[in-house]
């Protein structure tokens, strides 16, 4: 294309350019409305343009508020809004599925200096996101613990568990379950003793999302199963990590939550 071509077209801005400029102005709160806009009454339509800027930010803050209500309760509405604004700026959504937005909110909170005095906030956010994930996860029917008695006893140690698609495990150095439970029941999280960590399982076998605190050894046992270890290996790892690991007790809890969907024997998959 001859170079003078561009000059003769200079009046019309390409759609690509127009949209780039629009977004640049949209993402810069102090910027004036883009040049491509008409100027009613000869005025740059800054207030008009600001409606879009505002719609984007407010709708995303609302999306985060509805996904992270306990984080909001822990820090208060004003602080939450300011934090959400910073997160949106740092990491705008990449998908139109709003229930998936905020996957990295916990990590953001971990490193967000103004929230440094609330060091457990990131873990609470991860717990809330796990709940949201569980809510929208694939449905699958769990099996009962009685299924184990149909397997040849000498092969039980080789059994591998397929866990429910909605399941998330969290290990926190903070009492994340107690903090979440206290705040989600409108109680104060201030009475929670911050000295001990808690491990949590989040799962939705049916309609309701279950959040439970795992007993000692539960996390390493379930994490091993989740990573594909056999029942024997997972129990072995948990016994090493925890004194008096009671396998029967943990299996009962696990199946009771509806967390197991299939059991396979390593050699003869069934």
């Amino acid at each position: 294309m001859p170079s003078w071509c561009k000059a003769s077209w200079s009046e019309a801005v390409s759609l690509a350019e127009l949209q780039s400029d629009f977004i640049d102005s949209l993402r810069t709160p102090s910027a004036a409305a883009p040049e491509s806009l008409a100027t009613p009454g000869g005025m740059r339509p800054n207030r008009r343009f600001n409606v879009y800027r505002n719609n984007v930010v407010v709708s995303l803050i609302e999306a985060l508020r509805s996904s992270f209500p306990v984080v909001e309760r822990l820090v208060g509405e004003e602080f939450f809004k300011a934090t959400a604004r910073a997160y949106i700026d740092h990491e705008p959504p990449r998908s139109p599925l709003m229930f998936q937005y905020g996957e990295t909110f916990g990590n953001f909170l971990d490193a967000f200096p103004p929230a440094a005095s609330v060091p457990y906030l990131g873990d609470v956010a991860r717990l809330e996101f796990a709940r949201l994930n569980a809510y929208h996860a694939q449905d699958r029917v769990p099996i009962a613990i009685t299924h184990l008695s149909t397997l040849p006893p000498e092969q039980l140690g080789e059994a591998e568990f397929q866990l429910h698609p909605s399941l998330t495990l969290l290990s926190s150095r903070w009492p994340v379950f107690s903090l979440w439970a206290a705040s989600s029941e409108q109680q104060s999280a201030q009475d929670v003793n911050l000295d001990t960590g808690e491990d949590v399982i989040v799962i939705r076998p049916e309609y309701n999302v279950d959040v439970r605190c795992l007993p000692s050894g539960g996390y390493s046992f379930l994490k091993a199963l989740q990573d594909g270890a056999s029942l024997g290996d997972a129990a072995g790892q948990a016994s090493e990590a925890t004194e008096n690991f009671n396998l029967a007790h943990h299996l009962e809890g696990l199946f009771g939550l509806g967390a197991v969907c299939a059991v396979e024997l390593r050699n003869s998959k069934q």
Partner: peptide, 19 residues
Amino acid sequence: STHDDFFFNDLLPVPYTQE
């Protein structure tokens, strides 16, 4: 509502051009 892999969660206006 999308640009550079980002989703802006609002209905942004289209210029009424041939392009």
